[in-house]
Amino acid sequence: MRITRTRTLAAATAALLTVTASACSKSGGGSSTDTSAAGATASIAASCFASPSPLPSATGDALQGSVTFNDANLTALDNALACALKGHSLSNVNVAMVVNVAADYWNAGKTGFQAGCTALGISSSNCTYFAPPDGTLTEQDTELETLRGKGITGYSISAIDPASAKNAIATDVANGLFVLAIDSPLPGTDAAGLYLGTPNTEAGYQAGLAMKAALNGTGDVAVLVGSLTAANATERIAGFKQALAGTNIKVTVTENDNLSAATAQSDAETILANNPDVKGLYGVYSYDGPALAKAVTTAKKTDVKIVCDDSDPATLSAVQSGVISATVVQMPYYQGYTGAYIMAAMKVLGKTATMQLIQPFLETDGSTLSSGVGVVTQADYSAYTSLESQLGIG
């Protein structure tokens, strides 16, 4: 599996800020609030424009993996933002990445965010990462209040409670802060204009294609998920079913395991015992993969195909052994890395010039900047773990 590039070479990216780029004309370091400076930055943004590359599409019915994510396009965007930032001081940039829980999943996001800040030359004191130890709303709100007191100019957030965050985000935006939604969109808020993360319907669709290939186009499937109402879950299941349309594969059972790995395993064992026509299991939440792997092993039905989401270490181990046919993985590293670039540009160049550069890379909804969707199979295991190692997140 070919890997298009890695972001561990932060020094090379940082050089874009110090070496004259042929596409860039030098600009003064004036504030983006100044009218003449705003016009200049808009002009620079236009000269630094980059075109997106078409993403590869799955072909045929064979089980295929991919660990390229939205790699080439995010690199092109990062380079365009670096080009437009050239000649501007970033000394007033003070950004933060605030996630929803201290989990292994977010270690990659932290690594990416810090690497992005380093590449841009933003000091560590002006580049804050925070993960609530217990994943509580109070912890997240308290940290945001602390960051406001420290003069942050913008922050990315995976909001624990989007509804309760609405008023605070509106106030922050009114006070000149830029708020970037990551991991999960924030519709109905002032951060709704841009979301950097996984397009969940596409992720579900890729899971459906993997299941279609694993089952050779026929058989019943059960879906296990931690919530039947969460947007990311419903979108993934919808995408999964779209990929199966027109086949002889039917989703006959959907179970809510209520965020419990133990419940997921028990539900899967019950499904396998009572539904002999179920030949495939789709686990939507990160803990579902290992739980389903345990269930088919316990039931001695390892011929049942498992497709799941995320890169839990136990999931990857089961992919390596072949118990799990494929897992659809996200790349929070890019949410951190490109997120740092976007927040810096929003402060220095202003929203209009920054969005001018971002717009060509958005999904068809006009607001989603995909951090990519990967599919890891047994054949791709080494390529994926190598990528993690190269990014410093293995």
Rank of each mutant, 00 (worst) to 15 (best):
S123F: 02
A102S: 15
A159V: 04
D34N: 13
G193D: 14
N92K: 15
A108E: 08
I157W: 01
D172R: 03
D104V: 10
A15Q: 13
Q335H: 06
S321W: 09
K347M: 03
G121P: 00
N94F: 07
S266G: 10
S57I: 09
L120S: 06
V173S: 05
A46S: 14
V329I: 14
H88W: 02
D303V: 09
D303G: 09
G372A: 07
N73K: 03
L177K: 11
S66I: 03
L228A: 13
T368D: 06
M211E: 06
T354W: 03
A231G: 13
N232K: 12
D267Y: 08
L281P: 00
A262K: 11
A344K: 07
E235F: 07
T229K: 09
S321M: 10
I237F: 12
T254K: 00
T229G: 09
N275V: 10
I237Y: 10
S124L: 11
L259H: 14
Y282K: 02
T247V: 11
A11K: 12
S31R: 09
A340T: 08
A291I: 05
V101N: 11
T153F: 04
V375M: 05
N216F: 03
S311K: 05
S51G: 08
N216K: 15
M355D: 12
I271M: 08
K305C: 12
A340V: 07
Q356P: 09
A191P: 08
T377A: 08
G28H: 08
A38D: 01
A245E: 14
V329L: 09
A264D: 11
S22E: 15
A174H: 06
V221S: 01
P199T: 04
Y285S: 15
V67A: 07
D277I: 01
L180E: 06
V19S: 08
W106I: 01
A379C: 03
L357Y: 01
Q242C: 05
A261T: 01
D288C: 09
A174T: 13
G121D: 03
A15G: 15
A326L: 10
G239I: 06
L387E: 05
A103C: 11
D134K: 15
A115Y: 01
K250Q: 14
L55S: 10
A353N: 05
R2W: 15
G60K: 10
I306Y: 00
T4G: 12
D190H: 10
G29D: 07
V101H: 13
V375N: 00
N175I: 09
N216R: 12
I393Q: 02
A293D: 04
D134T: 13
T385M: 13
S123A: 14
A159I: 04
V278F: 06
L281M: 07
A45N: 00
I169D: 04
D183M: 00
S317K: 12
T18Q: 14
E145W: 07
I3A: 05
V329P: 03
A245N: 14
G217H: 11
V278T: 09
P52R: 05
S124Q: 14
S156W: 05
V348K: 07
D309W: 04
A192K: 11
A80C: 08
E269C: 06
Y384L: 09
A291S: 13
M355E: 14
D134F: 11
A102R: 14
S123G: 13
L17A: 12
G204L: 04
